[in-house]
């Protein structure tokens, strides 16, 4: 369904993405994982064909360079945060995108209904909560029932409740046979939603793997994010790995997968190494999907 070959994107002298290649069959789900600046968002923009890049990218056999409109007609896009005119009413925003997707009013209403937003059409976008905006973005992405949904950190600006709603909707989309491509900072989302993970580091594919290989712990797993000084992150990651924990350095702290009853253990490991933990965040309780490898 989605093919990328040698995708390279430069911003002046800076290489944002270098030689990224993958193939994603229809109905599969793939995540881009990496720290801030790793190239996740750039890769998504290249796949959408909204920025110039070297290499080949195609969606449903449509090259995003030569047949960009046809390729994007197969894709519903969910940005990090719905960016749209705040004064616009929800119904008007929906009508605009429905017109671009050649979708009638009833289908647009159905799309709103699926994310629990029907009845809010008269509300202005500025009056919507972050979660509602993101659900609207999902409703817009589902207009016309596109086979591919591309998401750029769709829950990064949401609270736990909002995140849960969005993740549940994405799970349903996945079960309905959609092809999902998303960038995320959150291990719990990747474990819950992805079949394949492309780990990006400074624009280069570090490895193509599975959530299970990234966090090889018994289920159910819980991910703890530790906030340290940047200088001590590498040392802390090394210490935790030596202690048998699966660790990933992310742009937003260290993500450590731990069994539910041993959440404080990483702090103890770091304390013994005299590494100060500034803050700790326990991410949503997640369960590895049945049959994941």
């Amino acid at each position: 369904m989605i093919i990328a070959r040698g995708v390279t994107k430069r911003y002046g002298r800076v290489v944002a993405v270098r030689n990224v290649s993958f193939e994603l069959p229809a109905g599969q789900s793939m995540a881009f994982w990496g720290s801030n600046g790793a190239g996740k968002t750039t890769m998504i923009r290249c796949l959408l064909g909204v920025t110039r890049f070297r290499g080949i990218a195609s969606i449903g056999s449509n090259s995003v360079k030569r047949r960009g409109r046809a390729a994007r007609a197969l894709v519903g896009y969910v940005p990090q945060e719905l960016a749209f005119h705040d004064d616009v009413r929800l119904g008007s925003a929906m009508a605009l995108f429905a017109s671009l997707r050649r979708v009638d009013r009833a289908s647009a209403h159905g799309s709103l209904d699926r994310v629990g937003l029907s009845g809010h059409e008269r509300k202005r976008l500025r009056d919507l909560s972050g979660g509602m905006k993101q659900r609207l973005a999902l409703a817009i992405a589902m207009l016309g029932d596109p086979p591919v949904i591309v998401l750029d950190e769709p829950t990064s600006n949401l609270d736990a409740a909002g995140r849960g709603e969005v993740v549940r909707t994405l799970q349903q989309l996945r079960q309905s046979g959609k092809t999902l491509v998303f960038a995320s900072h959150r291990p719990d989302e990747i474990i819950t939603l992805a079949d394949t993970v492309i780990v990006l580091d400074k624009g280069i594919v570090d490895r193509v793997t599975t959530p299970r290989e990234l966090w090889p712990t018994e289920k159910p797993v819980q991910v703890v994010r530790l906030y340290l000084s940047t200088a001590s992150e590498a040392e802390a990651a090394q210490a935790l790995r030596e202690a048998g924990h699966a660790v990933h350095i992310n742009g937003q702290g260290l993500c450590v997968a731990v069994p539910r009853d041993r959440k404080a253990e990483p702090i103890g490991v770091l304390e013994r190494k005299s590494i100060l933990v500034r803050n700790i965040e326990v991410l949503d309780d997640v369960r590895l999907p049945e049959g994941s490898t």
């Binding site: 017109s99 979708v103 629990g116 016309g144 029932d145 709603e165 549940r168 349903q172 989309l173 309905s176």
Partner: peptide
């Protein structure tokens, strides 16, 4: 939220606007 009941790809509808 209601349960999603989407089916697979429907190629006929995935045409860009004129």
């Amino acid at each position: 939220m209601t349960m999603l009941t989407m089916t697979g790809p429907r190629a006929a509808t995935h045409v860009p606007p004129s």
